[in-house]
């Protein structure tokens, strides 16, 4: 994801701002990292350049 996207991304649960933690990036994009809600502390992964802002109950492995 492009860092400029941080302007509009928010936590899906409480719509509060997110903090970006970069693990790996190239010149243009953040490839791996985390987005952490500044209010509720929920963590959202960035994997292969795509931020996963699915709420916890819809993530991989969430109970059906």
């Amino acid at each position: 994801m492009k860092e400029s996207l941080m302007d509009i991304l928010c936590c899906p649960l409480d719509k509060q701002e997110l903090e970006l933690e970069v693990v790996r990036r190239d010149e243009e994009e953040i490839l791996d990292g985390r987005l952490v809600c500044t209010e509720c502390d929920e963590e959202y992964p960035i994997e292969e350049g795509i931020p996963n802002l699915l709420p916890p109950d819809m993530r991989e492995g969430a109970p059906a």
């Binding site: 994801m1 302007d7 991304l9 899906p12 931020p51 709420p55």
Partner: peptide, 17 residues
């Protein structure tokens, strides 16, 4: 194009964006 995984009922975008 920016791609984001998210739920259409709980859109992870700020108001007025």
């Amino acid at each position: 194009l920016s791609l984001v995984a998210g739920d259409a009922a709980r859109i992870p975008l700020a108001a007025d964006s």
